[in-house]
Design a binder for these strands. Structure first.
Lengths: 248, 248
DNA sequence: CAGTGGTCTAGACCACGCC
DNA sequence: GCGTGGTCTAGACCACTGA
């Protein structure tokens, strides 16, 4: 039984409310503990905020913040009039930072190097026109770039930028630094779609990465809009063996 | 220039503060707009909370909530004494729900079916002992299960459960429903590590999924602890072509 | 050490949504 | 309708940390 894992002093410890004033963090801890120890089991209804405020000798405002954050973290469901309920499946949410490649590399203590592989102004390929619901015959700037960590291939970036949305992109110089840096500086974005998937290295990709044809490749795809207008679409191919990790 | 995309009425609209009292949501919108329109450019320092509260004819508490949430969302950095600063790279954070497979399938409108492929009590394999820092010679329950969506293979689950942490797992019946369901009901968890990566289908995996050997497979890995004790480790292999997506 | 954000209080009004 | 959470206010004290 999992209770074997609970040190004796904790059974009556955290679960019971300490005396004196408690911060919203303390309240979060106690509530979470009660959920995890099934004192408030799945689907059960928690006492109202006022009642909890009394128990914790705190105020409703403070209790509210604690419960609100636990709800954001996916432990509780809150509805007006209905009250606060424990979710049966811990619909926890994972959070990932979306860093710039450069930051990702330098944060890992490696040296970052960038290289422009290809630059081409072209009509939007039909799959892109369809995906972004572009008007027909739009012009796009297509770029391919490599990002290195300690001179090892780290990421291959294929990017399409809608010229109409960012005309000045045609003047930009991408030989020294990548389009992501430039876009971040020049264009705010209001909306983003992010996907993760697995693909296999084709001959082209394998050539750039330290990979063999057919190697499994972890890839992410990002599409960005500004106030409803598509700005750019990028696919990022990671070096074989890459693993994206979070803790919570 | 991206300003071309901004309808004229917005330039002097959202960016300027509306009169009257504003909610924290309104304040968030205005501040975000000013960031995106470079009125408060990257790295610039925002006015203090009191000053903003005056401008928005609101209180510091309300402004505080707005700025705090924008910071959580990755737009701002806040430090005592230093003030609130606009982050140069929109270090936005992606949030994913971590649903039960069954929910993921039924939410998509498909029919869920489960099948137990393998059940085995065994000594912990050495890689698992190392990964979870187990004491030597621990016993684990190893399970392999298939999850189907509309009778199409959707996910292959390989799971190891530390018997010592959850002894009663040996009595559980996993022929009708999966170990995840059981664990969620019986064992709370306090800590979780989550990874995403790409791998290729081996003969075994390809046999279960609708896949060929060598196909790229998107996989996730979850390790769960309860109060510092490892409980279970699972690797979930998705059917080829699976793509995980979020918007923000 | 002084200024900024972090948090708590006590009270109020409001809006949503079950009953 | 009416109870519950959602939010705002006005004020206070505190803790961190940069100048």
């Amino acid at each position: 039984m999992y209770n074997d894992l609970i040190p004796a002093f904790q059974i009556g410890g955290i679960v019971a409310a300490p005396k004196g004033n408690m911060s919203y963090r303390d309240i979060k801890k106690v509530v979470l503990d009660r959920i995890q120890n099934r004192i408030w089991g799945p689907d059960s209804l928690l006492p109202g905020e006022i009642e909890l405020a009394e128990e914790f000798s705190s105020t409703r405002t403070t209790v509210n913040r604690a419960l609100r954050e636990l709800a954001e973290e996916g432990f509780l469901e809150r509805k007006r009039k209905a009250g606060t309920r424990v979710l049966h499946s811990p619909a926890r949410k994972a959070q990932f930072a979306i860093p710039l490649v450069r930051d990702e590399i330098t944060d890992a203590g490696a040296t970052y190097r960038y290289s422009l592989v290809k630059r081409e102004v072209m009509p939007a390929p039909s799959w892109l026109t369809a995906k972004l619901a572009l008007k027909p015959d739009r012009e796009v700037l297509h770029l391919q770039c490599m990002h290195f960590a300690d001179n090892e291939p780290f990421q291959l970036e294929k990017r399409w930028i809608i010229v109409e949305s960012v005309p000045e992109v045609l003047e930009a110089d991408f030989t020294a630094s990548g389009p992501n840096d430039w876009l971040v500086q020049k264009v705010p974005f209001s909306n983003l779609e992010l996907s993760f998937f697995a693909t296999k290295a084709d001959e082209d990709t394998a050539g750039f990465m330290d990979a063999s044809v057919g190697d499994p490749i972890f890839a992410t795809q990002r599409t960005t809009w500004l106030r409803g207008e598509p700005v750019t679409h990028a696919v990022l191919y990671f070096t074989p063996g890459y693993k994206m990790t979070t803790r919570l």
